[in-house]
């Protein structure tokens, strides 16, 4: 990789964009256009820019990002399905000066790992949690997730999610923001350059916060699952903006331990006047 780069530079090519050094040379297995790859890159850039590559431990989930440990050139542990917050809790407690982050999907974090997530947040664990919400179980072939929208089709809701049968989409991020143990809670997305820039700033803040030792920093990233949604990446991003974003509004919810001005209290008590998607 490096040799080829040098070769091209010697031939007079100009380097305008390159892989961050915190990402390994391993070829990512994600579907083209999937938000996981973009989100990985942003985390790697933040680790690089903060100069903490030698002092960070990541925890990967069970889900499409199970192999995240192959892509980040930092020490990494792969947790059982949903248990990343418990795994990371102990890493941080025993190594309080190490930067610790979890990386989880919506099935992992908001279904099977709900207890671990809520209690890590409630204990105010001084770490960063990255939550990639694509409204579906990508890895296992597109089944319903707790975040699947009402009316949304999936492998296990072939006629669309019905509230009577499946209950309501779970807004974990709003829920966590009500806990005193969370210090920073935000929802971002990565479907276009503007969104990517904001998401990166949020991830940076969530890592920087670990220096303050004031509690959990939680970043939800809305992402498409173009394969699971059975759309092209471009159509999937459009669909996400039209359908996911009204239900999962983008922006900071809690900053420096305080709910952001203008956040509708109803949203935090989980008012479920959800937009039913078409």
């Amino acid at each position: 990789m490096e040799a080829r780069r040098q070769e091209l530079l010697n031939q007079g090519y100009e380097e305008v964009y390159t892989r961050t050094k915190v990402l390994t040379d391993a070829v990512m297995h994600y579907c083209p256009g999937c938000g996981h790859g973009t989100t990985h890159r942003l985390i790697a850039e933040v680790i690089d820019e903060m100069g903490i590559q030698d002092n960070v431990v990541g925890v990967s989930p069970v889900g499409c990002s199970v192999l995240a440990y192959n892509y980040f050139d930092v020490d990494f542990q792969e947790a059982a399905h949903g248990r990343a917050p418990a795994v990371a809790t102990a890493i941080k407690r025993l190594n309080p000066d190490t930067y610790v982050f979890t990386y989880q999907g919506d099935g992992d974090l908001a279904a099977i790992g709900t207890a671990e997530t809520i209690h890590a947040a409630n204990r105010g664990e001084n770490m960063t949690m990255i939550f990639v919400n694509n409204g579906i179980y990508g890895m296992t072939g597109g089944q319903m997730a707790p975040t699947t929208l009402v009316g949304m089709k999936s492998a296990t809701t072939p006629y669309g999610r019905r509230v009577e049968l499946n209950g309501y989409p779970l807004r974990m991020t709003e829920l966590l923001s009500t806990l005193p143990g969370t210090y920073y809670v935000t929802r971002q997305s990565v479907q276009n350059p503007a969104a990517v820039r904001k998401a990166k700033a949020a991830i940076r803040k969530a890592f920087e916060n670990q220096k303050l030792k004031k509690g959990l920093s939680f970043v939800e990233i809305l992402s498409n699952c173009n394969s699971g949604w059975k759309m092209t990446p471009v159509a999937a991003n459009k669909w996400m903006e039209d359908n996911m974003m009204p239900n999962y509004p983008i922006g900071d919810i809690k900053v420096d331990g305080k709910i952001v001005d203008g956040i509708d209290a109803n949203r935090l008590v989980l008012d479920h006047a959800l937009t039913v998607m078409q």
Binding site: V57, Q77, A79, R83, A90, N95
Partner: peptide, 24 residues
């Protein structure tokens, strides 16, 4: 030594997994 009461045995064994993986 760190001592923590977890929310369940599922959590405690996974905390063991995380903590012990750091070589402690």
């Amino acid at each position: 030594m760190t001592v923590l009461q977890a929310e369940s045995e599922v959590a405690s064994i996974n905390m063991v997994y995380g903590g012990a993986a750091t070589g402690k």
